[in-house]
Simulated assay, not measured.
Amino acid sequence: LLLVQACRDGNVEQIAVLLQATPKPDIHYVDPETGATLLHDACGSGSLDAVQALIRIGVPWNSVDFAHKSAGEAALEAGHMDVYDALVQEGIRSELLLEAVSRHHDDEDDDEPPKKKTKVSNAEYLASPLVFSEGRLLDSERNAVMMGWEHPLMIHHAKVIAPKPGLDVLNVGFGLGLVDKELQKLKPRTHTIIEAHPDVYKHMLEEGWDKIPGVKILFGRWQDVVPQLETYDGIFFDTFGEYYADLKEFHEVLPNILRQDGIYSYFNGLGGTDRFFHDVYCQIADLDLQDMCIQTEYVQLDLEALGDEVWQGTKRPYWSLNTYNLPICKF
């Protein structure tokens, strides 16, 4: 409790003394009522020195409380931007370090016989039945795959990747077809759609997408249909049930399918329920795209607050921020 109070006070000298005490204090202490960690307390105090001291001794940068609020969000709410920015940089450093370690282990395994990749990140989703209901697409566990509130965002995404008529565009992940309907309004020359879920594919055929001039549907996971892809003026990516590693893997394909003057964008739901995590992963995505010689500009769009009624009947919300960083990516 003395250490908790020292963190709340931002008293870095007292923190240093207590960390040397015997017995050692529990650096992973969690408030039994709120779930706040020592890092939450230090972030609330505004002491950058205290925050950095806790990070150095191993308190996780991505600590969250029982309400799933990050320590970074606690700093932001308290108005301590220097602390917030420092934690964002720590998050980026830690994630890139983990990635480098993982890549090193993969390189060590190169001497072994190659193994066919059998794990499919969204296999469970692809095998589950989907429900189209009142402008929402839900899976069997009532996870929201896509929702109508995204429509204004999809209007912007479509205009970004197809700024004029007569272009060749690619969309990875049909869902409710929101971005595809907007792309059709912009009169592309060709419009290729990749969709992996059989229920969505069936829905597309029922709506007649296979009969629209210029539209080509590739049914399957994007990883499996890459050999069928050509080059495009505009590309949009929005899959479900995949992870950031899958998004990064797609980014590694971009140099082969995006034309030199083309534009790429993706649904930027990274960390969509916590501003801190969102900012960390936006910058990580930016850095990873730089490795592909692609630069990213984030255009910030204001969103109306999504009330509880929007998520009624779903398992959990996947977005709660009041701004959206729309990525515009070019060579």
Rank of each mutant, 00 (worst) to 15 (best):
Q184E: 09
L186H: 04
I27N: 05
I194C: 09
Q300H: 05
L287E: 11
V226R: 06
P327A: 03
V310W: 07
E90C: 12
D210V: 10
S265Y: 01
G208P: 09
G175I: 13
R103M: 00
E124Q: 13
G234N: 03
Y324W: 06
L247W: 13
Q283Y: 07
D302E: 15
S128I: 09
I57N: 01
G135S: 10
A196I: 13
M292C: 13
K330W: 08
N268T: 03
L18A: 06
V88T: 08
N322F: 04
W149G: 03
L138I: 07
F240M: 00
S128L: 09
K115F: 05
T190A: 03
H197Y: 00
A42S: 12
N325A: 07
N256H: 11
A78S: 14
P60K: 02
R56S: 12
H80K: 05
D233S: 03
E124K: 10
Y318E: 00
S265E: 09
N122K: 02
W209L: 12
L39G: 03
K216H: 12
L137P: 01
E112V: 12
G269R: 14
L186D: 04
G234L: 11
V310K: 04
V310P: 06
G175V: 08
V4Q: 09
P25C: 10
R142N: 14
I193G: 02
E99P: 00
G79Y: 12
E141Q: 14
E13A: 14
K185G: 06
P113W: 08
V59P: 00
K185W: 10
V226I: 14
Y29T: 13
E150P: 00
V310A: 10
C7M: 09
C329R: 03
G72V: 02
G44V: 06
P60R: 11
A36I: 13
H203C: 11
S128G: 08
N322K: 13
P113V: 09
G91S: 01
L48N: 02
C329Q: 07
K211P: 00
L306I: 10
Q295N: 15
G234V: 08
G175M: 15
E195D: 08
R142T: 01
L126N: 09
L18M: 07
D246W: 06
T323D: 06
D274F: 03
E134K: 15
P114M: 01
D9A: 14
G241D: 04
D286F: 06
S47A: 04
W311M: 00
G173V: 04
N322Y: 07
D224C: 04
Q14P: 03
K202P: 01
G135Y: 01
H156M: 01
Q14A: 15
Y264M: 10
P113S: 09
Q20C: 14
